[in-house]
């Protein structure tokens, strides 16, 4: 049997499982892993492939629906909207800063200068821009 792994869940992490699913759907849509018009795997599929409680998955999906990240189509399931709305999130900027702080610390540790880090950031950005 071919079980697709859509998400990577770590039950030992401090982040509640439903939030891990939410984050990965958001990232999946942003990175083009889930394309506009595409349906997300069903609650049942996700819960059995990841071996997690189905309630957890439906909680994550309904919160995403509430934020208009995905839309519920009766009888079909959860769908990525044709034009995904960019939701404003106050926490985003703060989270990005925390990630960048790690990048800066690593760069210093590996004695990379600011220019080369910016250059690889730009390069990585472009590499990930087409779908």
């Amino acid at each position: 049997m071919n079980i697709k792994i859509y998400f990577q869940i770590n039950p030992n992490s401090g982040v509640p499982i439903y939030r891990q699913v939410i984050d990965q759907v958001r990232i999946g849509i942003a990175s083009g892993k889930f394309k506009p018009g595409e349906y997300l795997p069903s609650v049942r599929e996700v819960s059995s492939s990841l071996e997690i409680n189905p309630m957890t998955v439906s909680k994550a999906y309904s919160l995403l629906e509430k934020d208009n990240v995905i839309e519920f189509i009766r009888g079909q399931g959860m769908r990525v909207p044709d034009a995904p709305k960019i939701t404003e999130n106050k926490g985003n900027e703060k989270q990005m800063k925390a990630l960048l702080k790690e990048v800066v610390n690593c760069a210093k540790q590996w004695s990379l200068d600011q220019d080369s880090v910016l250059k690889s950031l730009k390069q990585t950005w472009e590499e990930n821009s087409h779908e």
């Binding site: 039950p11 030992n12 049942r44 819960s47 059995s48 071996e51 997690i52 409680n53 189905p54």
Partner: peptide, 30 residues
């Protein structure tokens, strides 16, 4: 765990279990 999840997603079933393995609990308990 898979069997219990199958059972709870197929029919209405209530589960009450004690455990010391917290990662299992995080997977299947609500």
């Amino acid at each position: 765990l898979r069997e219990i999840l199958d059972i709870v997603s197929q029919r209405s079933c209530t589960v009450f279990f004690s455990t010391h393995i917290t990662s299992d609990l995080e997977r299947i308990a609500d």
